[in-house]
Structure formats: C-alpha cells, structure tokens
Design a protein around this nucleic acid. Structure first.
Lengths: 115, 115
DNA sequence: CAAGTACTTCACGAAAGGGTTAACCATTGA
DNA sequence: TCAATGGTTAACCCTTTCGTGAAGTACTTG
C-alpha cells in the first residue's frame, strides 16, 4: 500500500523544527554546513547530526566544492518530497462523506456490539 | 513566511508511526477510539493520548454518537492536511537549478572567505 | 612538514515521548 | 441505585533524541 518505513523516516526527519528550518533555507539555495550551523547559533556537531539525518532519509545531499575539498555543500533532493506528496495525495484523495460512511458502517455492525 | 509553529506540530504529530497508521485508517472511514486501540493491540490510554495529539493539531476531530454518549467517534479534518500541502508546494515550487544558484552565490561572496 | 580550517564522530548529561497500570468521570441499563 | 462500559487523565519507567565539549579525520597553506 504505502512504503511505510521510508516515509516514517521522512516524517521523523521533518518533525524537528531545526531540520525544517534547514530545509527552508536550502530551498532558496544550497549552503555550507558551517553556514547552517551559524545561521541557528548552533554548534557544528549538532548541525552535523541534523544534516546526517536529512542525508540518511534522502531529503538532502552533499556535493564537494572543487575549490576546497574540506567544504561540504548541502542541497535538497526532490525524490523524498515527491514521496511525501504521494502520501498526502492518497490521504486527501478519496475524501467522501466521512460521517456518512461511518453511520453506514455502524448500521451494519450494530447488532454485534449492542443489544 | 510560513506559519511555523502550527506546521511544526503537524509534522511532529505525523512523525509517529502509530499516529500515521491511525490517519490511514481514519481515511477510509471514522472509527471509535476503542476500535483504534484494538486495531493496534494497544492499551486504551496509549491510543487516547495519540488521539489527543492528533486532535490538538487539528488533524482529527471527534463527534458524539447520538446512540451512546460514551462513545467517541474520530474522523479526519481536511484543513491541516491542506496546510501540509501548502508547505510542500512552497518547497517544491521554486526548484530552479540549485547548484547553479549556489555557485553564483559563492562567486559573489568568495572574497570574504578565501584570499 | 606544522599549524590552521572545515566538518564529523564520540561520550555524556538533560529533556521529551511513548507504553503501562491504576484511578477517575460520564453514561447506560438492570 | 449500583455494577458495567467507554474513554480520558495521572503517575511511573524506559528508550530515544537533542545539545555540548573533546577528540579525530581530511584537506589547505605558510
């Protein structure tokens, strides 16, 4: 039905406010790891781990800079966001009359639960 | 730019696998609280708290059943999902050439960081 | 090379989140 | 009116996770 595990990781990754703000920043243009740490007044190690989480879920990717191999530049990847949209589409899609659906269901199963 | 706080709560709510599966179930039709607890082989209190989280973020809503006032029926609400989509649209929207954007930026700021 | 830079991994204490049982409130119905 | 039912709140562990400082790796430069 849905690729649960991968999606779970995606949601978990985006659940953290800091990581969400990182995505918002990267959405404008790629940035260096240190740049991001500084942007939040956060220590480099902390940011490094946030970036690892984002990297592991595939929301983000790093390329090397020809200029200086020490530098890590992070940028967004589309795929995971597309997957997120896929889940959302599924939930929003078949949005019939929820309450009516329940009433109908309750009608059918009434006998089992009451009297 | 973006309504951060409310969105944060939405992501946090959906980050939990159990709550995600609850949403998947409710998407088909509304269900009773106890029904959901049973569906996951989980204690009623645990499910009750998950439902509270979903309720507080506005992803879910409860109506009373005329039949029996003890019963709580939960169903999805559209608004929050729409907000989620809004955020996603924004991130996916302006998806120019990310790397080019960074290179251009790096060009402008090069002098400040290196020689 | 040796010193400095960019970033990551390690070890650790603090806080948050989920699950459980026990107690509680409201409603039903004998 | 009193026992049973449906659900929520409270008190308690236990695991995960975030952040910090210290150490480590890799590259650059004098």
């Amino acid at each position: 039905m849905i690729a649960e595990t991968q999606l779970d990781k995606t949601f978990a990754a985006l659940a953290d406010p800091t990581r969400r703000r990182v995505v918002d920043l990267l959405h404008k243009r790629p940035r260096r790891a240190g740049e991001l740490a500084a942007a939040f007044g956060m220590s480099a190690p902390a940011m490094s781990r946030h970036l690892r989480v984002l990297r592991q879920t595939g929301l983000v990717e790093e390329d090397a800079l020809d200029d200086d191999a020490r530098v890590r530049v992070y940028r967004l990847r589309r795929e995971r966001f597309a997957a997120l949209r896929g889940w959302l589409d599924e939930v929003e899609g078949y949005w019939g009359d929820q309450l009516a659906a329940f009433k109908a269901h309750a009608e059918k199963t009434r006998g089992k639960k009451r009297t």
